[in-house]
Nucleic acid binder design. Structure first.
Lengths: 209, 209
DNA sequence: GTTTTTGCACTGACCAGTCAGTTCAAAAAG
DNA sequence: CTTTTTGAACTGACTGGTCAGTGCAAAAAC
């Protein structure tokens, strides 16, 4: 998802191979789903021998789980940074939410395949990586919940809002709007999408103005 | 999804079998995904021999496509009815949107597996049923778009809103909030979820009130 | 000389789709 | 009323193919 030496341990050659495998896997699985994607395909697209896949990952499922962790890590970091940046600049809670919406959109524009795959797997039950997904989802939603809660404490948001539900709804709004944008109206700009969501977020929908 | 003689043509026996197959397929595919679900499993859960599946549907994919059409048909009808009912009672556009949000939640509460499966497949590319999904998605979103457009014309909504994007965002908000509700906070009532979404929709989030 | 990658043959499980045969309720024949 | 026929609906063993994962010797990279 990004060429960087994330873990201190691995040699950079190995890390580069894993990176190529992540990139190959993410698009294939997003398009076809996990089960329909074969290890041979992943290896081929990564330009690597099949044996290399198994040298680097214990199994197909493990490759997938590590891919999930990797991707959501990037998203969470990005959301957190947006919120902190806004706070540093003295913006209010609504500004922070708005910044996070934008950060979400930027992420999805950059990694559409990952987002697609995440949404497709998130609500499945009885799958091997269920627990990984739960953890990883909670990390991301928690960032939004944190901002909402702080907004309520500071009196900038109504104290009647239901923090977990509102956080889920906001995340969903961004996810679905962005995926729809990518799939069905790719000609629209990120700013278009952002301002439509901003308007909804700030309750500037009703009222003729 | 409903025991009724929908088509005048088929015998009721056959219709009952197809019904059982839909019900078996929808939960299995929601849990495991299309590719990971075997025809043998579907047949077994429906209490029917494998051959019967192929007697009733040309292929596994066709079974799935007809299932999609069936399900979205129910959803669309339900949304449309909510909107019309509100209009008949003299409610405004925001009331109609609110009623549709509720109708969406009721649908998802009743058919969680279908919703799950729909979301999981909607943004995939290069799949056999891609075109079916596009059509079926458009039907559902169009109902929301119609209400939004009418609201703008009547001056009840800002004429600056982006109708397709806003419709997609609203649908996404409801879908994701509801799926999260079902998966992660099933103890909450439908009314809780509805009022959280209502508040968001009506811009009653910011402002301490 | 150690780590990583390659290439390729192999295995065993699994699975979509087929097809020859069975069931049975209702229609036709007696 | 009883027997026979019909055909739609259903069955489940079988086939041809696919795929995750293994094993390993040799090459490449470091």
């Amino acid at each position: 998802m990004e060429s960087s030496t994330v873990t201190g341990g691995g040699s950079s050659r190995r890390e580069a191979t894993r990176q190529k495998l992540y990139e190959a896997a993410v698009t294939l699985i997003a398009e076809q789903g996990f089960s329909a994607t074969t290890v041979d395909e992943i290896a081929e697209r990564a330009g690597v021998a099949k044996g290399t896949v198994y040298y680097n990952f214990a199994s197909k499922s493990v490759l997938f789980e590590e891919l999930l962790r990797h991707g959501v890590g990037l998203l969470t970091a990005s959301l957190r940074e947006a919120a902190e940046q806004t706070a540093k600049e003295g913006g209010g809670t609504v500004d922070a939410l708005d910044a996070m919406v934008r950060a979400g959109l930027v992420f999805i524009e950059r990694y559409p395949a990952f987002t697609q795959l995440y949404v497709a797997e998130l609500w499945r039950t009885n799958r091997a990586w269920q627990s990984t997904l739960m953890v990883v989802r909670q990390e991301a939603v928690a960032v939004v919940e944190g901002v909402l809660r702080e907004g309520v404490e500071r009196g900038e948001l109504s104290d009647e809002i239901d923090v977990p539900l509102t956080a889920a709804a906001l995340v969903g709004m961004v996810l679905v709007a962005a995926l729809d944008w990518q799939s069905f109206q790719p000609e629209r700009s990120l700013d278009d999408v952002h301002s439509a969501l901003s308007r909804l977020l700030q309750g500037r929908v009703s009222g003729a103005r």
